[in-house]
Computed example of a mutant assay.
Amino acid sequence: MDALTATLALLRLEGLGPARYWQLLEHFGDAAAGLQSFPEPLLRKLPERAQSRWLDFERRGHRSELWQWAEAERARCADAGVRLLHAGTDDYPELLAQISRPPPVLYLRGRAEALHLPQIAVVGARRASRAGLENARAFAADLAGAGFAITSGLALGVDAAAHRGALQADGATVAVLGSGVDRLYPRRNVALAEEILTAGGAVVSEMPLGASAEAANFPRRNRIISGLSLGVLLVEAALRSGSLITARLALEENREVFAIPGSIHNPLARGCHRVIKQGAALVETSADIAEQLGGLLSVPQTAASAAPAPLPEGQRTLIAALGGDPRSIEQLAAETGRDTGELMAALLQLELAGLAETLPGGYQLTPAGAVYLQGETG
């Protein structure tokens, strides 16, 4: 009995999941033996439909619906150009195999070699600030340029910015889905996924073909993201977010966790500050990450190393007043002695130059603005 087909058949049983799958393997030694000798106490814990499917397999073997589905799934994958990576084989990612009860099977579109590159996960908020998106893009571009593959979840916000940063640097990037690899989610990032594949990256999932993006799938996706990676970079995250789950899993798996700090007034910085308190490394540049993970940056010419272009005196004063924390228009008026109308005009010019951005109730510097401030005061 083929081991991969037996594994697919086992995973078809609702309620089994990776944890019980590995319990079976620990007891029986391989998937085929576990499927044929499914223990009755475990069978009783599964939903009625799963019990019926296995009993049908016990009676009819290879002619059962369960086995026929597994063989058809392999054929569907072959027709769609999707590879199946079975745990325990040489093509299964080595780092992922080291986590507790890894996915028994990975569905892969793209280049399997991308999964064997040293990977860094970049994760964060879907509704990230402009500064957060720029940080995700810039860090990912630098790290990809240094030879790391960038791994993320193809979500809107930080994930998409990280994938694009890697593509911008002509690097490899891996998108891990909470749906089947033939059901790309979110739909707004379908074109991005195709860019990843065209550029030699990979799209992977442990979900079968046709699986939709359900909420229960995303914690499982997050453990794959952290499991594939040497380390996880948290860019922006609220206190309750999937990105914090990814960071927590990475800590549990003894992987490195990095976080970019932010303003104490920014709700999206609180998740980063929490993981820093829990032991994550505070980072300010991509070189901080590359140095800790043993990679080498070729000192890329990024915004952080570019000299600031001259600005009018009024705009330079306003950048200094904005400083490192968000400021309301009233605070800026008090600190600069300028009237509201004049300030609004100057802030608009800074926004158009990409040096400042609007927040609810105020303004803050973008990463480029912070670089300019550092150049002025350094």
Results as ranks from 00 to 15, higher is better:
L184P: 03
S263K: 01
L154T: 04
L244W: 12
L251M: 15
G165D: 02
A191R: 15
S152V: 04
N254A: 14
I225F: 09
R270A: 13
L268W: 02
V232K: 11
A155V: 05
A172F: 07
Q168G: 14
G171V: 03
A202I: 11
A193N: 02
A162R: 08
Q168V: 11
V190T: 14
R220E: 04
V275C: 00
V275P: 00
G171N: 01
E214R: 15
M207K: 12
K277V: 00
V158C: 14
R221F: 06
L167K: 10
S263I: 02
A238H: 09
L197Q: 13
R270M: 10
L209I: 04
P267V: 02
G227V: 07
P208W: 07
F258E: 05
G180L: 07
P261M: 08
I224L: 12
R223N: 09
S229K: 12
R164I: 01
D182E: 01
E195Q: 15
A160W: 08
Y185G: 03
R248Y: 07
L249A: 14
V257K: 03
E253F: 15
A172M: 08
R270H: 15
A172K: 15
A166D: 09
H273F: 04
I245L: 15
G178Q: 02
G271A: 03
V176I: 04
E194F: 12
T151H: 01
I276S: 06
G271S: 12
P267R: 02
N189L: 10
L154H: 03
V181N: 00
V275Q: 00
V275W: 00
G231D: 04
R164G: 01
E236K: 09
R183A: 10
G210F: 05
L184M: 02
R223Y: 14
L249G: 11
I260Q: 05
L230A: 13
A160R: 15
A175D: 04
A175N: 04
L154G: 01
H265T: 05
A166S: 14
A237W: 12
A160Q: 12
S243N: 11
S212A: 15
F258A: 07
S179D: 03
R183D: 00
R221W: 02
G157L: 03
H273G: 01
L233W: 10
N266Q: 13
A155C: 07
S152F: 03
A160M: 08
T173G: 04
Y185C: 03
G210Q: 02
I260Y: 09
I245E: 06
G231T: 05
K277S: 02
L239S: 13
G262L: 03
R220T: 05
E206I: 12
A199D: 03
I245N: 13
A215G: 05
E206K: 13
V235Y: 05
G201C: 04
A259W: 08
G242P: 06
P261G: 09
G178E: 01
D170N: 14
N266G: 00
P219W: 03
P267M: 06
A172H: 13
G180C: 07
G180Q: 10
H273Q: 11
G242T: 09
E253P: 00
T198E: 12
A161T: 07
E206F: 13
G165R: 08
H163L: 10
V158F: 08
L268G: 01
L228S: 11
A172E: 07
A155I: 05
A237R: 12
E236I: 06
R270I: 00
E195R: 15
